[in-house]
Design a protein around this nucleic acid. Structure first.
Length: 507
RNA sequence: GGUAUUGUAGCCAAGUGGUCUAAGGCAACGCUCUGCAAAAGCGUUAUUCGUGAGUUCGAAUCUCACCAAUACCUCCA
């Protein structure tokens, strides 16, 4: 197995990936809070980690991929000064049970993930199913002296933790001194001893919809706690990779680390990975409306797939969007725009059509070693090196595109297929297949469009193109052009080549 | 205000000390192919990487200043 290097957010450098247990990988990714539909920005993050999951498996690791569903405890605002619970807010607005809200949006989330061809994680635990574990963790934190109870709520003592363990702020780059300086302000702290403290157990109010019995009375777990408790339960006190969006670094992940250290005494994660944001109109895609313009710049997947939105000129398919995401590195921001998606669409179809051309190529068995052969093998090798270099999908993709030219040249006869060895052609077929479908997780939508009546369509097209061929032999250009133009109107593109005419359904 | 990150061709975007006169996709232009197109192929399109200094034999890549944008600072993947 070639070594894999990944960028560790905690150390801020690329490190060689060495799993804690040989050949086994524990991967935890922060999942959605299921109080509303996921938007495209959320999808990018999950897609980035889908590639990580896929590539780790491709390299031969046995991966346990845990992605949580947060269905309780996520508050809007500060717990001790009367914040609103996200789940409860939606439940009240839609007149649904909180569990119904969670279910509705969990189902929707899964549907969207499936459309993007993101693999299901090995395990998808939910916060409400792990209340016992979370209570136990609060108890452990209290036992270790890093928490305090006030009036039925329990808070994490961030200041004490920060002073005793040189851990807090490491991930997000926050300094303890700055934090302590804040305490002089003494404003509106409620029950907390310090603004940096955070709720790990929240006392239920009379109208709280989701609440559970605990040693401290009825209440609900704090946000952050579900991830600590569930990652510990399913991956152990120390596991390999924790992923999530850049925006979760603070406070979510910082507090997660604090809770784990506070409860178990060990740093929970060996490698932290953070994906950067998807931008819409140059700003982070967010459901929250822009304070100035008052409009949200988030694009919902369904709006994108249907074309029913005011940002884009047309509908774009899930695979075009996935391809678009692959063209940027996961740690860079990515700017969504109509032009960028149109470009991605063209690129996606060019790649898929080249792949279909590639698998149709036959080799007569002769052939030897020359520059083409060497270049092909070099590109294939480098594509894997790119992936080993912190999952550089745009670079790996560029290698494949370099070979798209070669593939088309083989087809058109610009380069004789015999100029490369048979084994090299076979290798190219295998590697293209693996990259496109297994590692990048793309689906061939050029084929999918023929579903259901593929044979009929093929038969019809054979007939039509045969008739057109006859008219062309007779130099009856008006008939042949009419056929071509009418098919074009039906989104069927006719491609005349030296070896005959082929066709493809356009998007 | 604090803390980070980013600024690469018309657009999206790789590259973070020499192989960079900067990958790839899209767009544009020329040529080849074609009855004409489309598709495909070939070629051209940033001697330059926000601006200005500095370090270095050598900088898109390191340092400083400035300008601009974005993110986080207890809602967000």
């Amino acid at each position: 197995m070639t070594p894999l290097f990944l960028y560790n957010s905690l150390t801020r450098q690329k490190e060689e990936f060495v799993p804690i247990n040989p050949d086994l990988v524990g991967l935890y990714v922060c999942g959605p809070t299921v109080y509303s539909d996921v938007h495209l920005g959320n999808c990018r993050s999950f897609t980035s980690f889908d590639i990580v999951y896929r590539y780790l498996m491709y390299k031969g690791y046995k991966v346990r991929y845990v992605r949580n569903i947060t269905d309780a405890g996520h508050l809007v605002g500060d717990a001790d000064i009367g914040a609103e619970d996200k789940m409860a807010k939606t439940a009240k607005a839609l007149k649904l049970e909180p569990m119904e809200v969670a279910h509705k949006y969990t189902v929707g989330f899964h549907e969207v993930m499936k459309k993007f061809n993101n693999l299901a994680p090995s395990l998808e635990p939910r916060a409400t199913g792990h209340i016992t574990e979370q209570i136990k963790m609060v108890q452990d934190i209290l036992k270790n002296g890093f928490g305090y109870e006030v009036n039925g709520s329990v808070y994490f003592d961030t200041v004490k933790f920060a002073k005793e363990q040189d851990v807090y702020g490491k991930l997000s780059g926050r300094k303890l001194e700055d934090m302590l300086a804040e305490s002089r302000e003494l404003k509106n702290q409620g029950e907390k001893r310090h603004p940096a403290d955070f709720a790990i157990w929240i006392k239920a109010e009379e109208n709280t919809l989701q609440k559970w019995d605990s040693p401290w009375g009825e209440g609900l777990p704090g946000w952050h706690l579900e991830c600590s408790a569930m990652s510990t339960k399913y991956l152990g006190a120390k596991f390999d990779i924790h992923g999530g969006g850049e925006d979760l670094k603070f406070p979510h992940h910082e507090n997660e680390i604090a809770q784990n250290c506070g409860a178990c005494g060990t740093m929970p994660v060996k490698y932290w990975m953070h994906g950067d944001m998807l931008l819409g109109n140059g700003k982070k895609m967010s459901k929250t409306p822009d304070p100035v313009t008052g409009i949200s710049n988030s694009v919902m997947p369904e709006e994108l797939f249907s074309g029913d939105n005011n940002m884009l000129s047309k509908a774009f398919s899930p695979m075009v969007v996935r391809f678009f995401m692959l063209q940027a590195h996961y740690r860079s921001t990515l700017d969504l725009s109509n032009d960028a998606l149109l470009a991605a669409e063209k690129g996606y179809y060019r790649l898929m059509e080249a792949y279909n051309t590639l698998i149709s190529l036959d080799h007569d068995g002769s052939g030897g070693t020359n520059d083409d052969e060497q270049q092909i093998n070099t590109m294939l090798d480098k594509a894997f090196e790119d992936m080993d270099n912190d999952f550089n999908t745009p670079m790996a993709l560029s290698r494949l595109f370099t070979l798209v030219n070669k593939i088309n040249s083989f087809k058109s006869g610009h380069i004789a297929i015999g100029s490369i060895a048979k084994g090299t052609l076979e290798r190219m077929k295998k590697v293209f297949h693996d990259f496109i479908f297994v590692i990048f997780g793309l689906l061939d939508e050029t084929q999918a469009s023929n579903n259901g009546n593929g044979e009929v369509l093929d038969g019809l097209m054979d007939l039509i193109l045969e008739l057109r061929k006859e008219s062309r032999v007779k130099k009856d250009w008006s008939t042949s052009d009419q056929i071509r133009d009418k098919l074009k109107e039906l989104k069927i593109q006719v491609k005349d080549g030296k070896e005959g005419t082929t066709w493809v359904v356009e998007k």
